[in-house]
Computed example of a mutant assay.
Amino acid sequence: MSTTKPPVVFIHGLWLHPDSWQPWIERFAEAGYTAIAPGWPGVADTVAASRENPGAIADHGIDAVDAHYTDIIAGLPAAPIVIGHSFGGMIAQKLLGEDKAVAAIGIDAAQIKGVLPLPLSSLHATLPVFRNPANIHRAVELTEDQFRYAFGNAVPEPESKDLFERYTIPAPGRPLFEAAAANFSLHSPAKVNTDRDTGAPLLLIAGGQDHTVPEVITKATLKQYRHTDAPTELLEFSDRGHSLTVDHGWPEVADACLTWLAGMGF
């Protein structure tokens, strides 16, 4: 049996630049993985360049992002493990359901079609996008206060400010509008193949203090996989918010992912 580990593809969500995965790339390299963190369509190589050109980021929907990462995966030497945060967690699930990955981890993953809970905190966190219907075609930036509520509520305010300044970029509004309409659309791009029969495992991670994707959404997502025999598990961090992949506690989350992958034979 080969001892070569699959490559790892990290997928960021809305409002965080892919540079936010760099500590994870280094952590996974220490564990023997080769990892990359490509940006979404239109996202520039740096935070500053992404902020300067929000038009390049605008109007990319879920299908476009899925196709973008499908192309990236096609250029890898082997099918990867995909690890995504927030909307990146949704994309990771889509790629797994499309048989393009050998395993997936969705961290505070955005709701997929079929998930019904819509907590008030989620509505408040995404209000900067939904307050204007025209934002479906635009890239939207968060203010520092909005980031504090949506991402940094479980960390000290100075840390939230630092994360905001270091990693935030404009994000396309379209994926949020698509997810919001998913349960009213027969062919929604937020639909995921939850009945996968390839045996490829999935780990869902929930932050108990998350305002943007409260744990009730992650638990409801888990229920969507009730008809699959493939390993599908839930891990909760009760004291963590939506910033759990980038704040001071990220090593605990990363190490939990590595432990789970090792247990799955990766």
Rank of each mutant, 00 (worst) to 15 (best):
T4F: 05
P6I: 04
P7I: 10
V8L: 09
V9W: 14
I11H: 13
I11C: 10
L16R: 08
L16V: 07
H17L: 01
H17W: 01
W24R: 03
E26F: 06
R27F: 03
R27M: 10
I36K: 07
G39F: 09
W40C: 02
P41Y: 01
V43G: 00
V43C: 00
D45M: 15
V47Y: 03
A48P: 00
R51F: 15
N53T: 02
G55D: 13
I57D: 02
A58K: 09
A58I: 14
G61Y: 04
D63H: 10
V65D: 07
D66F: 15
D66E: 12
A67V: 03
D71H: 09
A79K: 15
P80N: 06
I83W: 01
H85R: 15
I91V: 08
I91E: 07
I91C: 07
A92V: 08
E98L: 12
D99V: 11
D99P: 05
K100G: 08
K100N: 13
V102M: 12
A110M: 09
L116D: 08
S121R: 09
S122E: 12
L123F: 01
V129K: 10
P133V: 03
A134Q: 11
I136A: 11
R138S: 07
V140K: 13
Q146L: 06
R148W: 11
F151E: 04
G152V: 03
A154F: 02
A154G: 02
V155L: 06
V155R: 06
S160V: 02
S160D: 02
K161N: 12
E165H: 13
R166L: 07
Y167P: 00
Y167R: 13
T168P: 00
G173D: 09
F177H: 04
A180G: 06
P189V: 03
A200D: 05
A200F: 13
L204E: 09
H211C: 08
E215F: 06
V216C: 11
L222R: 14
L222A: 15
H227C: 10
L234C: 00
E236P: 00
S238M: 11
D247M: 06
H248K: 02
P251E: 05
E252D: 00
A256S: 09
L261M: 07
A262M: 06
